[in-house]
Design a binder for these strands. Structure first.
Lengths: 334, 334
DNA sequence: CTGTTAGCGCGTTCAT
DNA sequence: ATGAACGCGCTAACAG
């Protein structure tokens, strides 16, 4: 690799002048236009690129942002990929390198946190679910000076210190329910996980003058698997409960529910319309192509990077948490 | 952050001694045991950790490996995640940081390549499909001194210069076909993509004394989607062709095929047994849980890191490409 | 057994 | 309009 010295030597000028010209840091003074031109051309010819380690050493900035992604969403939903993709694209725009770590448990996350504050990265994006202990750890890191932005599945930041790029889960619930209501569903079965989402559904049903049927609420708080979906459907059918719509809390639940319906001889969407959440790739090839609400995680990733860069470059400015709008993707199941 | 100087000052010794002790680079000489102990303890107390930028500057090693993952497999198969997970785990064991980039097209990949050789990373793992142009670029980088390991979907390395951690696709075909034969299938439909895989199927059928039915070969070379699976099935059924087994080239194809079978009133596995490839998460909740051959990409990732580290640390030793064994995961569809 | 010196490549005063 | 000198934190060669 060519260095500043190589360029300086070739042109018989000092390294510092080359540095100033190439960085555009001339202060009040100016260099001869033709020299500037010559320096630029020589740098180009020699394929000069600054040594990041040397720059980091003197500037105290690494131009690296850390990304800790707690595996988010059910397997196969490509949520992590979407989030990572958004972060990658935006980081490149800001000329930042990325130190990505997918972690599947708290222990790993804790270990990763211990890497921070070691002159390795300038800031941190933490994606996915954050447990209490990790939360404390993050607050500590923040207090020690590492800018941190979270990208969580909920709307609310964990604390004012940790600005969040989130998702309006109430709106997720609203979109799903509103779509079913619009398609004529009157009795909607609801698998319940986040209260926010359930609340969004209630908002919509209330506004439409439809009753919320308590017997059609199925608690699935920590179970987003296909089994929960199948169980709910079978329970309702066995109980002789009529329903013409179903909002699941994940695409996997929705698929489980659809499979159960089909196996029982019911038709989707004719007998029951189904909506999932996550817009996973397999929505396209479920037994009936599945309508789903997308979290728009690529946008979340982009926003998170922007927020973090602001925090790194203007540490004094306080940051406001924001929300990304979910989107409905209509397919045959509704 | 505490520096070597801080430790040295506290103990009234020189920085270089502290460095030697902490790095275990004493050469032939020895330091007083109690001093060694004191240095270690002080480092611990001060929470000392070496500044990676400074180390990189003087050693010329970044302790960073680049990972360019060309999105591999159909969406939702979690193949990228598996590969990334294996790479991450192993990189941590080698104390290497990771510069991961998912790229979805050649252009991005080309752009990423231009980052190499800029004192940013010590070596490169390139995962997924590699097109001709990128291949040339990689050879160039290799020639300029960047160690490169590929992690490809095939068994063969692109060139002797680029050692590969691959998958024995012939064995993938064998596993799938052998399983169906063992379950009693006599007329097996085969969606064809890679010749290797098809060859593996032929191996097995031949050995079992079963005929390869040409009319049950369906060309799907560049189409691994559910549509290809559905089309094959519909074509065969419309043609009045009997078949009792089906090997798809992806789980998505297999699911498309199963959906088509079920929609036509056929039963899986009673009438037709189906095997997919990739072992995607959604195998568990397809309309019939899908038997699938896994590429074992986590192991591929681990091996790739090991190979790259060997290449970085012992540049003279030539590297041999290797293959990871695929695995069969049996579910209800067969 | 330990310290001195030099230098990795760059950015930043402060002189000239 | 330009350059000399210093320091970021660390390692390595060489002296004692």
């Amino acid at each position: 690799m060519a260095t500043l010295r190589d360029i300086a030597a070739r042109l018989g000028v000092s390294e510092s002048l080359v540095s100033k010209v190439l960085r555009g840091r001339m202060g009040t003074t100016k260099a001869r236009p033709e020299l500037i031109e010559a320096i630029r051309r020589t740098a180009e010819e020699l394929g000069y690129a600054p040594n990041p380690a040397a720059q980091a050493l003197v500037r105290g900035r690494q131009d690296v942002i850390g990304v800790f992604l707690r595996m988010v969403g059910q397997g196969g939903t490509a949520q992590n990929e979407a989030l990572a993709k958004g972060i990658l694209a935006q980081a490149r725009r800001h000329n930042q390198r990325l130190l990505i770590n997918f972690c599947s448990d708290d222990e790993e996350m804790q270990m990763l946190c211990s890497l921070v504050g070691r002159n390795i990265l300038d800031g941190l994006i933490v994606g996915g679910f954050v447990r209490e202990e990790i939360f404390r750890e993050l607050l500590r890191l923040r207090a020690e000076g590492t800018p941190i932005v979270t990208a969580m599945t909920g709307a609310a930041p964990l604390s004012p210190e940790l600005p969040n790029v989130g998702i309006d889960q109430r709106q997720v619930g609203r979109l799903a329910a509103a779509h079913l209501v619009e398609r004529g569903c009157r009795r909607i079965g609801l698998l319940c996980s986040m209260d926010e989402r359930t609340g969004g559904c209630r908002d919509v049903l209330g506004a439409a003058g439809l009753p919320v049927c308590d017997e059609l609420l199925w608690p699935a708080r920590y179970n987003l698997t296909h089994r929960a979906g199948a169980e709910a459907v079978e329970h309702w059918l066995d109980g002789g409960l009529a329903f013409d719509g179903l909002v699941a809390q994940s695409d996997e639940q929705a698929v489980g529910a659809m499979n159960a319906l089909v196996n029982r001889g019911l038709r989707v969407p004719d007998d029951v319309r189904v909506v999932g959440i996550d817009d996973a790739p397999y929505c396209d090839f479920a037994i009936v192509p599945l309508t789903s609400v997308s979290h728009n995680l690529e946008a979340v990733g982009r926003q998170a990077v922007d927020m973090l860069m602001a925090a790194i470059e203007r540490p004094s400015e306080p940051l406001k948490s924001i929300c990304v709008e979910p989107m409905l993707h209509v397919r045959a199941s509704s």
